[in-house]
Write a protein that binds this DNA or RNA. Structure first.
Length: 152
DNA sequence: GCCAACGTTGGC
DNA sequence: GCCAACGTTGGC
């Protein structure tokens, strides 16, 4: 059992989109960074906890809890010529970009980035480290416990 | 395989 | 819109 923080731009896909999605589940499409891909492909297991994070928006922060709902499989948008995520170098026989399904656990109150930065317990969080831009980062069990308790 | 140039992320 | 940080690309 692992824990993750996954960023999404709410203009693209928000917590409310997840609430409204069929089965409250979505393929986590569009990741085009190898480290983030590798986390999904190699390290995630069904049932892992996910902090759903809104980035590049008015109040960046955690907006809900989710969980990994599938093993990894190819991100179909890499093959779609009209998609912004199209990758001309990706081949069906040899997909580059893999994803997992993520399903809602529950929408929570927002925990803004500013609030997160105020907790010494979260000082070491990967996503809060200077210069970190990764859209998927690991979360420790202690960080998960702390955050979910605050979001009760 | 180095590394400069370029592109992207994401908070502010 | 700015810009720091960092990943990727491509010439050599």
């Amino acid at each position: 059992m692992n824990y993750w923080l996954m960023k999404s731009e709410p203009d693209e896909f928000s917590i409310d989109d997840l609430v409204a999605a069929p089965k409250q589940s979505t393929p986590w499409f569009g990741v085009r960074n190898y480290m983030a891909r590798n986390y999904m492909r190699d390290s995630m297991t069904v049932g892992d906890g996910v902090l759903f994070y809104h980035s590049s928006c008015e109040v960046p922060g955690i907006y809900g809890l989710a969980e990994v709902a599938s093993t990894s499989y190819p991100d179909d948008t890499q093959f779609q010529k009209k998609s912004p995520y199209y990758d001309p170098k990706a081949k069906k026989e040899e997909p580059r970009w893999m994803l997992v399904d993520v399903k809602l656990a529950r929408k929570t109150r927002p925990m803004p980035l500013e609030e997160m930065r105020g907790y010494p317990q979260l000082a070491e969080m990967v996503t809060l480290r200077k210069g970190n831009r990764l859209s998927i980062t690991p979360v420790t069990a202690a960080e998960w416990k702390f955050i979910t308790a605050k979001l009760k």
